[in-house]
Design a protein around this nucleic acid. Structure first.
Lengths: 171, 171
DNA sequence: TCCGCTATGTTTAGGCCTAAACAGAGTAGC
DNA sequence: GCTACTCTGTTTAGGCCTAAACATAGCGGA
């Protein structure tokens, strides 16, 4: 029934291999577990709405960029955390389903702009509230103070990790 | 260069669709971003060690279960967050690489116990410290207090979300 | 003008995962 | 002793992703 907690994992390593550097486990492991819990739950909610998480992410980025709801694939790759190849595939799938439209970009360079179709716009309007509403209910167990503190620490950690993992260095 | 921050995403939704329930964004989004940053970084560290994250996870669970380093596939599925089918595939891959061994379980029911080979044991000993050490350095930007607070809030949130997503109900 | 460099996208090969269909091993009740 | 049911694992079909190989499109210097 109960899954292993991060604290138990760290304790198990210390018991089996005293001296193992386990300081990060109680931070990193729950982040992975939560990411998976949120992802699975979101997938379940979206299945009912006839859309998948990857497509929702794509349409969301375009939708909240505001009118005229158009972005180049380069911008899409920058604003989502996936590779250019993944964007290319997402766009192809969404285009096949009639949710977006591709058109050649005009300003210099070779470029492609992706824009929402009416169907795509309707689909995102109909699903974003249910997804975000559901997620708000999942974090409702924390008090306002706890949520603020957690958000602040996560923001700090994200900035730290991004700095330490990108480019050279690392120590 | 800079990626969009969760706070900017929430602000964008409020600008475009006033009233969108964005309370969860500054919690859920950074968790996903961090999970991906950690996963990518771990994959990079492991590539050098000749092992992948899925196999490391498998061997780790068996290793820290203690002597005699044997678990049934059912136990493996329970202790990792993946499906039984995924375990079956992970075990098949690891067996092909000579890292684990499969043998019929004796106690009642049909069951299969997975045990570490010497090669598997050596591989996990040689990589766990480098992975955990690297991750410790990634979270080193937080003070001891901040780490403790973050760990506590993440543990609480994980318990909450698990409770709210499992089984029926949800509201 | 020509050649090549750089910025952009797309395609391909392969990895890992989930859901669901399968299959085998015990167990329980008749 | 049989049949049905319930655990356990494995296999299959399909999805999404990354890395890397491929294409193109403009620009720029000689």
């Amino acid at each position: 029934m109960s899954n292993t907690t991060p604290a138990e994992i760290a304790a198990a390593w210390q018991r089996e291999r005293p001296g193992t550097p386990t300081e990060s486990i109680e931070i990193v492991t729950p982040i992975w577990q939560l990411a998976k819990l949120f992802a699975d739950d979101r997938a379940r909610v979206l299945r009912a709405a006839g859309i998948d998480a990857a497509t929702l992410d794509l349409l969301s980025v375009i939708r909240r960029s505001g009118p005229p709801y158009r972005l180049t694939t380069r911008e899409l790759a920058r604003r989502t955390l996936v590779t250019a190849g993944a964007i290319s595939q997402r766009v192809a799938r969404a285009e096949r389903e009639g949710l977006i439209r591709r058109s050649p970009g005009e300003t210099g360079r070779k470029s492609v702009v992706v824009s929402l179709t009416d169907e795509g716009h309707a689909l995102i309007e109909g699903s974003v509230d249910s997804v975000l509403g559901r997620e708000a209910s999942l974090v409702a167990g924390l008090s306002a103070d706890e949520k603020a503190t957690l958000a602040r620490l996560l923001a700090k950690l994200t900035a730290d990790v991004r700095r330490r993992t990108s480019a050279a260095d690392g120590s």
